[in-house]
Design a protein around this nucleic acid. Structure first.
Lengths: 243, 243
DNA sequence: ATCTAGACATTGGACGTCCCATCTCCTGTA
DNA sequence: TACAGGAGATGGGACGTCCAATGTCTAGAT
């Protein structure tokens, strides 16, 4: 399974296409050999030989695949087919947000909007599938958050957990990961634009309100309260953009 | 929670950290210098010198940033801050789907589910913001699709356009891009599992039905019809997985 | 017999150098 | 004025060399 286009007329294909072909070549190799998550890939040298390109070149593609969450690279050990994760997306999107903060913060606002749209748009579907067990899990998370708030500890871990469990009924790991990405980007933007003194009690209460609406299966109210959840940062973003 | 804290041995972390630090280093450099979309980055050699790493090493990071849509690399000309695009995500996600098709197609199903959840979950918000102009645009797209169907031409371009315009009222480029990613992944999965003879008229009619519900601002009906939209491929996926 | 420390092979990480491919821009000619 | 072609700059790629991290295996001590 070689990059067939190389033998014929390399010049006809743009460099970008060749680079992309190498990446898909490696992915095809994984699929052709029936490698599964956790299985080891050939070594860099072997790949270099089999694909007929230099080791540096294959390394560039491997780094890209690593960034895309396709493979996992372990120094001194080998390379393996990775379980999916979107972590790479976070840095790219955060960069976008920071970049846009310099003019009008439009993209940062869009990032917030995406998270808001995802959360308030999908909560209805989640409520449809909500079981008592899910509600119990949510309550447990909220109690942990309340404990932390009383001790003056930071809430972000509990916050993340709450939002993850909110959409657990959808039973879709991929979607949870995706929403987690936007949670993280949200948080980074929040940190970047600087926050005033955080009111732990208020923050906890906001989440209790959301929990209550969800537990009562009131889709409209839950959706509205989730929207509210983002009003604060939107205001601050506008201030920063105006300045 | 697949994203954040996977169990990681300390040394592997450091290796990852250096690579990641280089990437963020380049992004910081862009931000520090006030570079904007379209502006040129320093040359590879300059970056190599300024960041104190070898050119090959910096190239690996640059390729990653290119894959993440942060920069655009033009052979023989230079590197530039890129407008955001998620196109890189597509290949990674498609790989996931193809990989999962070999056992139970779970991830492929999740990918479909994500698109379905996004579309049917967000249509309500879109309808809230729908204007007559948006409806007119949608109708125009549908008429173009119908024309193509009558000529026996492939519909996928019109299909993509229809779904893009469906969420245009949300006025969020980022979200449109994101949904476009899942549209493309959906299509690739569709092609990968093989489709029976496509019924152009039926396909067009399905879209007309969705259009009608949206134009009438019937959120529930629109959401339901969007859900239906995916029933076919889900069935086929289950067949493939069972085989 | 068991445990541990250290040697060892394997593998990825980083770098330098050389040459090729491609682009833009400028110059010269018709 | 317009077009063709060259010059220079920049990214693309290939080796070769050495460094660093990791897991394994073995020898020695207990």
């Amino acid at each position: 399974m070689a990059i067939a286009s190389q033998e014929v007329s390399p010049a006809r294909f743009s460099a970008q296409l060749r680079s992309h072909a190498l990446q898909t070549g490696i992915m095809d190799l994984i699929l052709d050999r029936g490698l599964d998550v956790g299985d080891a890939l050939p070594t860099e040298s072997e790949l270099s030989a089999e694909l007929g390109v230099g080791r540096n070149t294959v390394r560039e593609s491997l780094k890209v695949l690593q960034a895309l969450g396709v493979i996992e690279i372990r120094h001194g050990f080998g390379m393996f087919v990775a379980p999916n994760n979107f972590s790479a997306l976070v840095s790219g999107l955060t960069f976008r947000g920071r970049l846009s903060l310099r003019h009008k913060g439009e993209e940062a606002m869009e990032l917030i909007d995406v998270r808001q749209a995802l959360e308030s748009g999908l909560i209805g579907l989640a409520i449809d599938l909500l079981t008592d067990e899910h509600v119990a899990d949510l309550r447990a998370t909220m109690e942990a958050m309340e404990d932390a708030a009383k001790k003056g500890e930071p809430l972000h871990e509990h916050d993340a957990e709450f939002h993850r469990r909110l959409y657990a009924p959808l039973n879709n790991e991929l979607l949870i990961n995706l929403m987690d990405v936007f949670w993280q980007v949200y948080r980074k933007i929040h940190l970047a634009i600087g926050t005033g003194p955080v009111n732990l009690e208020q923050q906890t209460q906001d989440h209790w309100d959301i929990f209550e609406a969800v537990a009562n299966k009131d889709k409209a109210l839950a959706s509205e309260r989730l929207q509210r959840h983002f009003d604060g940062i939107r205001l601050k973003l506008k201030e920063v953009a105006a300045a």
